[in-house]
């Protein structure tokens, strides 16, 4: 009896954590999104009873996000930014994680610390530092002109898509590298040796063995950085400030930051969360399949 409950009970803190810090807040946002607004203070009045929920705000958000709606362009722009930033993160982050896991040797710990080190400084401060570096007379232009990559200084902060995307990459890439490193570091080297023994070239061994086995790390890291990137609003604010580079998070910020329609902000949050849930489900399905293929599911 004792042994029967011991291991399930060990999950209790995690379950409590999840309930308190995810389920309850998420339900509160839902109750706000489907609730009403105080007519005097314009504060959201949550409707806790699902039977009394008002889906009008959700419909309004869907209408605005649909083609022809006022948020269609900003929605598409957000997806494009996140997809490009994710691709760049993978292009940069995978080799770094691969090198650290497989070839760094005794430098592994140091490299990991260097990767984590930027996270010791707040995200906002790091972005503000980039504002200085990206000024027309900043170091970025100076270096690029000194190396003759540029013939004249560029206005990186003038409301450019590229600046926002690169800032997203810079801000989130450590969160991709760490799970990728963990996945690559776990790969049993005997698999690779077997592939090479069977005549696979290094590239073929990577493509047929390493890459598939690191898929969970890729997906885990991708989910980890994609979710916050979709809701990001301060990165475009800090490094651009132009409406032409705003993201959907800026709209949530606008409606939550005062005014008579906080429910619109909450409803948009719900729609965004639903969209991200699709990505999450794909990730969970992939993990589950990988575990089954590895024979870990059911073995317990």
């Amino acid at each position: 009896m004792y042994r029967r409950w011991l291991w399930p009970a060990s999950a209790l803190p995690g379950v409590l954590w999840l309930v308190l810090l995810f389920v309850v807040p998420f339900y509160a946002v839902l109750a706000v999104a489907l609730g009403t607004v105080d007519p005097i203070l314009f504060q959201p009045v949550p409707t806790w009873n699902p039977l009394e929920w008002n889906v009008g705000w959700l419909n309004e958000v869907f209408t605005r996000l649909a083609p022809g709606g006022i948020w269609f362009d900003v929605g598409v722009r957000t997806i494009v930014y996140v997809v490009i930033a994710l691709a760049l993160c993978l292009l940069i982050g995978y080799p770094v994680a691969y090198y650290t896991a497989r070839h760094a040797g005794r430098w592994k710990g140091l490299i990991l610390i260097l990767i984590i080190m930027p996270l010791w400084i707040s995200y906002m401060m790091r972005m503000l530092a980039w504002v200085n570096l990206l000024q027309e007379d900043g170091w970025v232009n100076e270096v690029l002109m000194f190396t003759q990559v540029l013939s004249e200084p560029q206005d990186w902060l003038g409301g450019r898509d590229l600046t926002v995307i690169l800032a997203l990459v810079y801000g989130y890439i450590p969160f991709l590298i760490l799970p990728l490193f963990a996945a690559l570091d776990r790969i049993d080297r005997s698999h690779l040796e077997a592939a090479r023994d069977l005549g696979a070239s290094p590239w073929s061994a990577f493509r047929r063995v390493t890459l598939p086995l690191s898929k969970t790390g890729i997906l885990g890291g991708a989910v980890l950085i994609t979710l916050p990137m979709f809701g990001d609003y301060y990165t475009p604010n800090i490094v651009s400030g132009a409406p032409s580079t705003s993201m959907i998070g800026n709209q949530i910020d606008l409606y939550f930051h005062g005014g008579p329609q906080p429910t619109i902000g909450a409803a948009l949050t719900i729609v965004l969360a639903a969209f991200l849930t699709i990505l999450m489900l794909y990730y969970m399905r992939t993990i589950h399949r990988a575990q089954r293929e590895a024979g870990t599911v059911g073995a317990l």
């Binding site: 948020w71 900003v74 722009r77 409406p243 580079t245 705003s246």
Partner: peptide, 10 residues
């Protein structure tokens, strides 16, 4: 203002 802030097609 939300419409303006959305930034149009990029």
């Amino acid at each position: 203002y939300s419409n303006f802030l959305a930034g149009g097609g990029s």
